[in-house]
Design a protein around this nucleic acid. Structure first.
Length: 173
DNA sequence: CCCTGATTCGC
DNA sequence: GCGAATCAGG
């Protein structure tokens, strides 16, 4: 199917309405989302209300030209990735201040977490705000406080309701 | 793995 | 002009 005036008009409308390229493609029918995106660019309306855009162009390195379309051909071009690794000077591995976090647990990042620092996770590991406790290790990989939480067997069994347990645990998170 | 838009370039 | 392939992200 080609781009009739009407289909282009529909495309414009839906795009401005904030629909995604794939949704527009599905609604128009007979085109893929790539076709829609391509058309959008050609029409010069690539930018719209962009929710999660860096605002700044964020400098993108121009992609090396595509190796040409060869159907059913070995896609990967062998590349000597090993050679240039040696040229780089050995980056000093970090002076190793090894500073324990005494207060404000959770300021140890994956980068600053030392060998003997409490590895109690704080926050959402999939988020970039993720940290570790970072205080001095006591038992196992944890500080004394977190070790208690980690290794409490069935001690809390008497009257500790589920909500009470949850509350006590939350303190450590 | 799902999705998003962006880009390149053979057709 | 078109859009598949590919990329870079969320």
């Amino acid at each position: 199917m080609g781009w009739t005036d009407e289909r282009v008009e529909t495309l414009k409308k839906l795009w401005q309405d904030g629909l995604s390229a794939s949704q527009i493609a599905k609604q128009l029918g007979g085109v893929t989302r790539n076709a829609v995106i391509g058309k959008v660019h050609r029409l010069g309306l690539s930018g719209r209300a962009a929710p999660s855009k860096p605002a700044r162009p964020v400098f993108k390195a121009p992609r090396p030209a595509r190796p040409a379309a060869q159907p059913a051909a070995p896609r990967r071009i062998a590349e000597p990735a090993v050679a240039q690794a040696a040229a780089a000077p050995a980056p000093t591995p970090v002076p190793s201040p090894v500073r324990y976090v005494e207060e404000a647990p959770g300021s140890a990042t994956v980068l600053t977490l030392g060998a003997h620092m409490c590895k109690w996770p704080i926050g959402d590991p999939s988020s970039d705000g993720f940290t570790f406790c970072g205080r001095r290790q006591s038992e196992g990989p944890y500080c004394a406080e977190h070790a208690r939480v980690a290794y409490q067997p069935a001690q809390a069994k008497k009257r500790s309701s589920a909500s009470e347990l949850a509350r006590s645990l939350r303190r450590y998170i």
